[in-house]
Amino acid sequence: MPRQGDAMHLRHLAVAGGVWLFASCVRSQSALPASWEGDRSIVFPPFYAQSALQVGAEAKVYALDGRLLQAVRAAMDDFIPPGSREERPCWGKPESYRSRVIREGDIFFILIHEDPDACGAQYVGVDTGARYAVSIDGRILRRSVGAEPDAIQVPEPVDAGIPGAERMLEPESHLQVDGGTL
């Protein structure tokens, strides 16, 4: 994705679930408890206010930021911890998800959502997946699941949004295509 030189730019990117597999050189955060929510003063931006830049189309070349991959991997590893050999349903596998990513300053906001093409037409799911805020050094700052309200109870929310900044970066694509392009 193009970089524009400074952290004032926000980018919206959609990445297929398989991307994290390729960011193997980053360190991982120790497992977070299921009830962990992190800093609830962090407010998520709307992930669909803009169209996403789709990353992974066939026969194109992409240059992906290492910190972006690190952030997506941290989020996906938390959402679906790697290494388990137990049998999983289709929606229990990272390749069944896409990640929609917005960078705002030093924070990556990531929406992990089901790839509608991944698990066939057997079921319909609402509010599955999760939202994450991940720091530029790969630490998960906030986890939100379901249809959680914004942090309105916090007196002075720290919205990581930057007024006037350009928004969004979302990598989204089919797994097999992404796997071949990274």
Binding site: W91, Q122, Y123, V124, V126, D127, T128, V145
Partner: peptide, 18 residues
């Protein structure tokens, strides 16, 4: 009600047959 505590213990939402 489809919460799945065997997977990651925190995901919410609901999945139902189509």
């Amino acid at each position: 009600e489809s919460s799945d505590p065997t997977r990651n213990g925190f995901e919410q939402g609901c999945r139902a047959p189509a």
